[in-house]
Simulated assay, not measured.
Amino acid sequence: MSESFVPSNMPSPLVFERVSREQFEQELQPMGQPFVMKGFAKHWHIVKSGLNSPNDLRRKAPQLNEAISVTRILAEEKSRMFYNPDMTGMNFGVASLSLDDCLRRMQETADNGKDDSPDYAAQCVPVAKYFPQILNNIDNPLVEKGLEPFIWFGNRVIVAPHFDETDNIAVVAAGRRRFTLFPPQQTKNLYIGPLDFNPAGQAISLVNILKPDLDAHPKYAEAYKHGLSVELAPGDAIYIPTPWWHHVQSLSPFNVLINYWWSQNDFGTAKPLGALLHAIQAFRTLPKPQQDAFRALLDYYVFDEANASREHIPEHAHGWLGELDDEKRRVLEHWIKNFSQ
């Protein structure tokens, strides 16, 4: 592999020292670009106190007997959550353990420091349920008050490029993590795997971006040109807009991340990924002339920024082409359900 294809040689996303709620909502979020906020959570107690080990986190978890889903990756997989060699299953196992057992196993791997130890990870864990005592000390002024945060903790785990359905602010609370990101326009160059069979619910890139095989994935060279990468320390945060692809590499023997997901829009029942799946069902099997025809309709009604579909219609008659209030949304959802039957 050429050294020119390592993530650390990619440019960094934009970096800010301070971001106000007004700046975030009016200037930065509308750009649709990821950016880093240095020292965003340096005042959080869990950051200031230094979570250096699973034992440190154990002392903040009163619900140690609560069951939790834990991922175990054998040492030979080099920390990478992925498919098995013939893509008939995954290269990791998942078990339900007590939180105490989970943290004990993570501590053993962190203490071992050898290449023959498995890596463990607990992912997307509700903070309020398992670590309620830290909930009041992890403020995030950029999102609505009361938005539920999630905590991710474990050893040196590597998550393949994937995208989230909603916007994401991810905050490193312990250890170091590298985020490598690709814009949605590079999807065609990332060799995306199956939608319905994947490690964690979202389709992933089949490219090992830490050691890309350009014979197997030659188009990745183009995706690489558009990638961004940054290493974050405790207290740093990153904003990842949907649907940017992001690869996450936990670099320390023990890592903790807290994240917040939310949508900029009230989608009702018509969520974007669901609409994409419905579009696959509706359009993929059509004859090519009909596919081209519906592509034109989608461009006209959905993706035309000039609002050509409504500019010639009196505003009072825009209907579903205009702003969707609650009543219009309810009627539209009723029509969608009827069309789906």
Rank of each mutant, 00 (worst) to 15 (best):
N259F: 00
R310D: 02
H247N: 13
V256H: 02
A306C: 13
Q291E: 09
G235F: 09
A279T: 13
K288S: 13
S263I: 01
S252M: 00
P287V: 11
R284T: 12
I280L: 09
F294K: 00
I313E: 04
K288R: 11
Q264V: 08
T285R: 10
Y300Q: 05
A296C: 09
N255F: 03
Y260Q: 05
V302Q: 04
Q249I: 01
A282Q: 08
Q264G: 14
S263G: 13
W245G: 01
N307K: 12
I313D: 07
Y301Q: 00
L251T: 04
L276I: 11
E305K: 15
V248D: 03
E231D: 08
H278Y: 05
T242P: 03
P234S: 03
K288N: 15
S252T: 11
A282R: 06
Q281W: 08
Y300R: 08
D299G: 15
P287S: 12
G274A: 09
P272M: 06
H246K: 09
T285H: 09
P241L: 04
F267D: 09
A237N: 07
A233I: 01
P287T: 10
H246P: 05
A308S: 13
W262F: 14
I280C: 12
H247E: 01
I313V: 14
L257T: 07
W244Y: 05
P287I: 04
L251A: 01
F283S: 05
N307Q: 11
F254E: 02
L251F: 01
A275D: 12
A282E: 06
W245H: 02
N265G: 06
R310L: 07
F303Q: 08
L276H: 10
A308H: 09
D292M: 08
P243S: 10
N265C: 05
P272F: 08
W244S: 07
P314Y: 09
E231V: 12
A308V: 12
Q291I: 06
I258T: 08
A275L: 15
I313P: 05
D266S: 14
W245T: 00
Q291H: 01
N265R: 11
N307H: 08
V256A: 05
A317K: 09
Q291K: 10
P253H: 06
F267L: 05
F283P: 02
L276F: 13
T242S: 14
S252H: 02
S263N: 10
S252F: 00
A306Y: 07
E305V: 15
G274R: 11
A237R: 08
I238C: 06
I280W: 07
N265A: 09
A275K: 01
E231R: 06
P314L: 07
I280M: 12
L277E: 14
A279F: 02
T285I: 04
E311C: 13
S309I: 15
L273E: 13
Y300L: 10
Y260H: 09
W245L: 05
L257R: 03
V302F: 11
H312K: 11
A275F: 10
L277K: 10
H246L: 04
A233H: 15
